[in-house]
């Protein structure tokens, strides 16, 4: 095996490798969007609406969820109680959650939480 030949082959291989590496740099950047922010804002709106009304009825809360997120599924939590809401979907890749505290009639802090499956 000739030594020079090995150097040449190695050099050519390296050059081609660098060329392919440059060509394979992703041309398309991931487009940033604000969908996540929009979902979190709407979750926050729901929490504010419930805190404003101070009527923590799970059936009513479920109806509100379906009104705001008609094509999504998720979960509503009130204290230790949790219910599934919305259209049951398949696999969930992401979950967007928001929570807040409210005082009930006896001035006990009750946690209200919403989760949306993305």
């Amino acid at each position: 095996m000739k030594r020079r030949g090995i150097y040449l082959a190695f050099e050519a291989m390296l050059s081609l490798l660098i060329l392919f590496a440059i060509l394979s740099i992703p041309m398309q950047n991931k487009m940033e969007d604000l969908d996540e922010l929009h979902i979190l804002q709407k979750e926050d709106d729901l929490l504010k609406a419930w805190l404003f009304e101070r009527d923590f009825d799970l059936d009513g809360m479920k109806a509100d969820f379906e009104f705001v997120f008609p094509n999504s599924s998720g979960e509503i939590g009130l204290g230790n109680e949790r219910i599934a809401v919305g259209k049951p979907g398949g696999r969930h890749r992401e979950t967007y959650s928001a929570s807040g505290f409210a005082l009930d009639g006896e001035l006990n802090a009750v946690e209200i939480s919403i989760s949306i499956y993305g």
Partner: peptide, 9 residues
């Protein structure tokens, strides 16, 4: 156009 929806009273 871009639509933004919010829940309000």
């Amino acid at each position: 156009c871009s639509a933004v929806e919010r829940l309000v009273h």
